[in-house]
Design a protein around this nucleic acid. Structure first.
Lengths: 237, 237
DNA sequence: GTGCATATTATTGTATGCAATATAACGGCG
DNA sequence: CGCCGTTATATTGCATACAATAATATGCAC
């Protein structure tokens, strides 16, 4: 029993309505890699963990499926997504396509306060890289993604922001699956370079740096077709 | 009773699984403007129309909410989305940001057969513009959107394709709400121009044309803040 | 007749129950 | 011993039932 991962996430939080809370908790767990790709997420288990009925658990899983973080197979259930190399390529292609434009919009609208906030985020990120331990790694992953998300937020376009949230989350899955270097996430210095370029309103180089940054992350992936590609989601751990 | 729109869509189709079928049918109804923005979509009514329980109806509505075509307000129910002028701007900003890149990818991969297909789509579109009647208008709206979607499909990036589907669908809502010109959709000739540029592998002008095309659509919108902005979804018709 | 408090109705939120499907366990047979 | 068909178990798909909330109607005071 309990073949599903007994994820160690905080199932408590009085605020917010059921489904969303569950969805957020599971998403965090996936993005922070406490839930491995392919892990089965049974409705009963999820419901049990959060003390809700299968109805809500199911709704949360469905929502995560829309975000591409979970695959639901008919009559078989929900699994943490296991992006194929091709999907991985498309995710990063999407980021290359979208992030320069977002950065450009952000550059046009950014305020001094926001620039400062970005700097603080960077500092935090740097601090975490120095620390050891699981939780520091997780926080680092999150901070690294948050950099890109904050830029999207600054751009002021909620639609692009949501799309980026999806892309960043799925990127985390891809890196977990295909990343080679020990560096848990993207190069910290590159983030800094982008910000300094942004600070001097040098949009073009900022965009260039962003593109290279994404390419660097991608270069660290080993996207060769694995032997058993998708073989029942790698035996659905 | 039956305050919800009695939409005249075919509620029958043996193939495909419940939720998805409902979702697609309602989405089509929204995109083709048979369902006006703000229309209430009660779970019972939707379920009744498709002869399924509220469970499935609810799931379909939730899915549409994720696509931005429906707003669900807690304890109040689901309504056909009523994008604010600001949302409208963001939707088109997103399209300006994304479509040139998609077009570029498409240009790199397009085959002769696909180019021909695009031409046929254009012909069909032209034919529909000549015709009169509601159903021709609807088909025209769809064809016009399909042009952009086919480009996304040719680009080979499923993620961008899905994103474009969302944007095109929401654009239809925006045009329904804020469009001024009688032309139900975008300029037909501009589509043609883009394709000819694509035909001679002239990516740069194709992208330029696409940008202008989007700007033209946007220029036809009257995005001044309406008097009762969001006043309970315009009295939730 | 208007305004407000109350009661009634309708609709949504959530849990539970049953049928259908898939997975796993079992046992005979080659 | 391995293979295959059967049975048993677990899990999902869907519908229904009940509780909670919002919308509406009613009645009373003024």
């Amino acid at each position: 029993m309990n073949s599903s991962a007994d994820m160690l996430l905080t199932p408590s939080d009085p605020t917010d309505t059921g489904t969303q809370q569950i969805r957020d908790a599971i998403r965090d767990a996936i993005v922070e890699r406490r839930l491995a790709p392919g892990t089965k997420l049974s409705e009963s288990d999820v419901g049990g963990l959060f003390n809700v009925s299968r109805t809500l658990a199911r709704a949360a899983l469905q929502a995560l499926a829309y975000e591409g973080l979970v695959n639901v197979e008919r009559n078989r259930g929900a699994f943490v997504a296991y992006p194929s190399p091709e999907e991985a390529r498309q995710i990063f292609a999407a980021r290359r396509l979208v992030e320069p434009g977002i950065l450009k919009s952000a550059a046009e609208r950014i305020t001094a306060a926001q620039l400062k906030q970005l700097g603080q985020l960077l500092l935090e990120e740097g601090r975490l890289i120095g620390e050891r331990g699981q939780s520091a790694r997780r926080a680092e992953i999150k901070a690294s993604g948050d950099f890109h998300l904050m830029l999207a937020s600054i751009s002021g376009n909620l639609i692009m922001q949501r799309f980026m949230e999806e892309l960043v989350a799925r990127s985390s899955l891809v890196i977990a699956l295909y990343g080679q270097s020990s560096a848990s996430s993207c190069g910290h210095s590159e983030h800094a370079d982008i910000i300094t370029a942004l600070g001097r309103k040098d949009v073009d180089t900022a965009c260039d740096l962003m593109l290279h940054h994404i390419e660097h992350i991608e270069a660290d992936l080993d996207l060769r077709e694995r032997k058993s590609f998708d073989l029942r989601e790698a035996f659905e751990r």
